[in-house]
């Protein structure tokens, strides 16, 4: 009986909460919470400053993807329609968001900052096909607000302040056109492995 009287302390808490502000919000279409700039959901492929498709088909994202959901078909080197310089191209690029774990590794390894993630809440699809991003869908997503992270920025953030300031920061600075078209040149550089302590 005494114990039941003590229940009033619990009743007080729920009573208190009756007058608190609502904590939930209607979902996404009329919500409108501002997402932080690093917020990441789906994917987009972007064009670089020259107006070319930034992807050079180097297959780095395909190799790093833990879920193995990215498929890149390299298109070989071709002169850019805008600058005329030869650069790598991708013939096809598909990304199956059904199995994506949103780890951002593909963004981090991209040497051309070609793949970015989106900053808007993901809209669920009605079929598997809707979540399968083809190259057209990825380039169409370019118009959607993108997340902060790009390859160069992520690498820059991690390399910042490191005692030995080797390639990565230098790599982040110049516009993509300089290193374009030489995907074969990238692998040997960062493959140094672990073991270096500051």
């Amino acid at each position: 009986m005494i114990g039941l009287l003590q229940a009033f302390s619990a009743l007080r808490i729920t009573g208190l909460n009756l007058f608190r502000a609502k904590n939930t919000e209607p979902l996404p279409w009329d919500g409108g919470r501002v997402r932080p700039e690093r917020y990441r959901t789906s994917f987009a492929l972007v064009h670089n400053s020259d107006g070319d498709e930034a992807c050079i088909g180097c297959k780095m994202c395909e190799k790093i993807c833990p879920s193995q959901i990215i498929t890149v078909v390299p298109g070989g080197r071709a002169p850019s329609p805008n600058t005329g310089k030869p650069r790598g191209t991708a013939k096809d690029f598909t990304l199956d968001v059904n199995a994506c774990i949103h780890c951002e590794l593909c963004v981090q390894v991209c040497p051309e900052d070609a793949i970015v993630m989106l900053r808007v809440p993901e809209v669920p699809g009605f079929s598997r096909e809707e979540l399968f991003l083809s190259m057209e869908k990825l380039y169409a997503n370019e118009k959607v607000p993108a997340s902060w992270g790009t390859g160069a920025l992520l690498i820059g953030m991690q390399a910042e302040g490191q005692p030995k300031p080797p390639p990565p920061p230098a790599k982040a600075a110049p516009p993509p056109a300089t290193t374009a078209g030489v995907p074969e040149a990238t692998p040997p550089a960062p493959a140094a492995g672990g073991g270096e302590t500051p």
Partner: peptide, 10 residues
């Protein structure tokens, strides 16, 4: 819903 700071059916 009010006790749990949520709107309930809407």
């Amino acid at each position: 819903g009010a006790m749990q700071n949520r709107p309930g059916p809407t």
